[in-house]
Computed example of a mutant assay.
Amino acid sequence: MSEDKNRYGQTTGHVWDETLAELTNPPPKWWMLGLHASWILVVLYTLYYPSWPLVHSHFKGFAGWTAIGEFKKDMKEVQDVRAKYEDKLPGMSAAAILADNELKNYVVRSAKVLFGDNCAACHGSGGAGNPGFPALVDDDWLYGGTIDNIQQTITNGRKGMMPKMGGNQLTDEEIDKLANAIVGGTITKEPLFAAKGCIGCHGPDGKGMAALGSANLTDKIWRFKAQDQLASVKTTIKHGVNDPSDPNTRKAEMPSWKDRLTDTQIKKLAVYVHEFGGGK
């Protein structure tokens, strides 16, 4: 043992391979200072913030800090910044908001979350549309793309109707001719377009009527987009859209949001959608 002391300093008596010894020297002072500073900091932290559990509650800390209190403070700071804009919105129309550039920019930024929570599931996060649902970024609007049209659509919803044309109305051969003319961009040159009364809803120029919500058949923007677009158009002509008499009819309905969103939220969404670039 004394020999170990001389060779290695204070040891536990455990020596291996003649030179490997387990020492009992004290740790460096800097390490000990760090250790004591750490436990002192822990004690101070638990005294300053909520920490120790008690029988029916917990020690609340001398600072009186809570996570919900900090959250409310942060929210108040955000609301104070927003207030100068939010206070104006209830008394303004969506068109008036668009005319105020500063207010419009605020609404577009603040409505992004609203759109994500309520609209993106169908129309896509950027308004590009998901399968079976219309895109909002093009310039094709069944009921018109003005700010007032968009606001009315969000408020009341839309459920257009195209009667099925298969069966007694059109033969399969006639449906093929009309579908090929629509996909080929020559619908107004197809005699069946006028002869079968299609112009009554889609207009003599084939561009549709906003008052009826009828589709523009000349712009190659498809409400029911598909890899086989010709087959998709045939299906629409044959079975119609929202025709209760045909179980195979296309389903297309925009729900009303007036019972789920406030008037101000609807105006915000109308401005946000309008500013995608497709609004008129």
Rank of each mutant, 00 (worst) to 15 (best):
V271A: 10
L35E: 15
I187R: 02
L44W: 06
I147L: 11
G208R: 05
C119L: 07
N101H: 13
G208F: 01
Y8M: 03
I187G: 00
C119E: 05
K5F: 14
Y49I: 03
E190I: 02
Q227E: 15
S57Q: 10
V81H: 00
F71P: 00
A179G: 05
G167C: 10
S38R: 09
G13S: 04
K88F: 05
R82P: 00
E70M: 13
V113M: 12
V15D: 02
D139V: 03
D176K: 07
K225M: 07
C201F: 03
N180T: 02
K60P: 09
A21M: 01
W141T: 01
L47Y: 13
G64M: 07
K104M: 13
K29Q: 14
T249D: 07
G126Q: 03
L47S: 09
K60R: 13
D80L: 15
K72I: 12
H123K: 04
E22N: 01
R260K: 14
K189C: 02
N156S: 09
K258P: 00
Q169E: 14
D219H: 03
K267R: 07
W31A: 15
G9P: 07
T236C: 10
I199M: 10
D139W: 08
A179L: 06
G13W: 10
T24D: 12
L41F: 06
T46R: 14
V78W: 15
S256Y: 02
M1R: 08
N149T: 04
G61W: 07
G34S: 11
K268W: 06
T155K: 00
L261D: 06
I187H: 02
A194E: 12
R7N: 12
D140T: 03
N156T: 08
K88Q: 14
T171V: 11
F276I: 00
G145E: 01
H56I: 00
D139C: 03
G126P: 01
T46H: 11
Q152I: 02
A63S: 15
K220V: 08
P247L: 04
G197M: 00
V78G: 14
K112R: 07
P50D: 14
G132D: 04
R82L: 13
A94M: 01
T186Y: 05
T19F: 09
F224V: 01
E70T: 00
Y106T: 06
F115I: 00
L41K: 06
I237D: 01
T46G: 12
H239C: 01
E190F: 04
S93Q: 15
F276P: 03
A120F: 07
K268Y: 00
D74Q: 15
G34C: 09
H123W: 04
M161P: 00
R223D: 08
G166H: 09
K5Q: 14
A96Y: 10
G69P: 04
G203R: 03
V113E: 09
G126E: 10
V113H: 02
I97S: 03
A270H: 06
P191D: 03
L269V: 10
P28R: 12
D243F: 04
L217E: 05
E3P: 04
V55N: 13
T188H: 02
G61S: 15
A99E: 12
K73M: 15
L54P: 11
V271P: 12
W222S: 07
E18N: 12
L103N: 12
G166C: 11
D4H: 12
Q10D: 14
K177I: 05
D243L: 09
M1F: 10
G61F: 06
D259M: 15
D117F: 09
N216D: 08
N156E: 10
M75C: 13
